[in-house]
């Protein structure tokens, strides 16, 4: 009997095809059952190693030309400004799967890279899923006051510089609530972590919130990316 993704866990809804795609399997029909089983195992194992945590905080925001003032943080970014146009409030958001997943990936990177690749892919799908669920709760809360949430917009998207990572996380006190830290080079650790700005608007948003893959991809400069979905 083939293994299944654990049914009663928060990560049970992860899309296996997406995991396979992240692992470089462009056509799931062309790979054997062993590869699919390895993806299932990777979802379960990284799900169990994860200790997901998230934090969000609402703050005021004003957009002026290409610059956004978010809670006193001045961000010059044409793309972020365009994204937040019409929002007078935003949510700062951060989430992580925790360092257990990093260690799991490191362990297999030392002895079985084929599986490390699968774990990496599973963890990427998991953190996305976790963020989507956290955002759905926020969305419901804002719906009660007649507001919609824009998709998550993260430092590193478009011209929203990664150099804002540290300040964004500091405003969330993200270390205290989630354990997310920023390395000397500006990258988040644990590695499966997300930080984002989410605009609050009174205009109805097309589709669901979450990471809004098509919108995100459309603006991304990396047009040769294997995961591009436009």
């Amino acid at each position: 009997m083939a293994a299944q993704i654990n049914p009663d866990k928060w990560y049970s809804g992860v899309d296996l095809e997406e995991v396979l795609r992240y692992a470089g399997v462009k056509d799931a029909a062309l790979c054997g059952e062993d590869v699919k089983q390895s993806a299932v195992r990777a979802v379960n194992e990284s799900g169990e190693a994860a200790a997901p945590k998230q934090i969000s905080r609402e703050c005021l925001c004003s957009v002026n030309g290409d610059s956004c003032d978010i809670d006193g943080m001045l961000i010059v970014s044409r793309d972020l400004a365009a994204h937040l146009r019409g929002c007078d409030r935003v949510l700062l958001f951060a989430a992580t799967l925790g360092s257990g997943v990093d260690l799991l990936i490191a362990r297999y990177s030392a002895v079985k890279m084929s599986y490390a690749v699968m774990l990496q892919a599973a963890a990427a799908a998991l953190v996305e899923r976790y963020c989507d669920e956290a955002n759905a709760l926020l969305e419901a809360r804002y719906a009660a006051e007649g507001c919609w949430l824009k998709p998550r917009y993260s430092p590193g998207y478009g011209d929203f510089s990664l150099t804002h990572q540290q300040a964004l996380l500091a405003r969330l006190n993200a270390y205290k609530y989630t354990g997310i830290t920023v390395s000397g080079g500006g990258q988040m650790t644990p590695m499966k972590s997300v930080s984002a700005v989410i605009g609050v608007t009174r205009e109805r948003q097309p589709g669901s919130t979450g990471s809004c893959a098509s919108g995100k991809c459309a603006r991304c400069p990396n047009i040769s990316c294997a995961f591009r979905r436009v």
């Binding site: 470089g24 399997v25 056509d27 790979c31 054997g32 079985k112 890279m113 084929s114 690749v117």
Partner: peptide, 10 residues
């Protein structure tokens, strides 16, 4: 695909 390439390598 990549996982298979790596499995063969291993």
């Amino acid at each position: 695909f990549l996982p298979q390439l790596l499995m063969s390598a291993e």
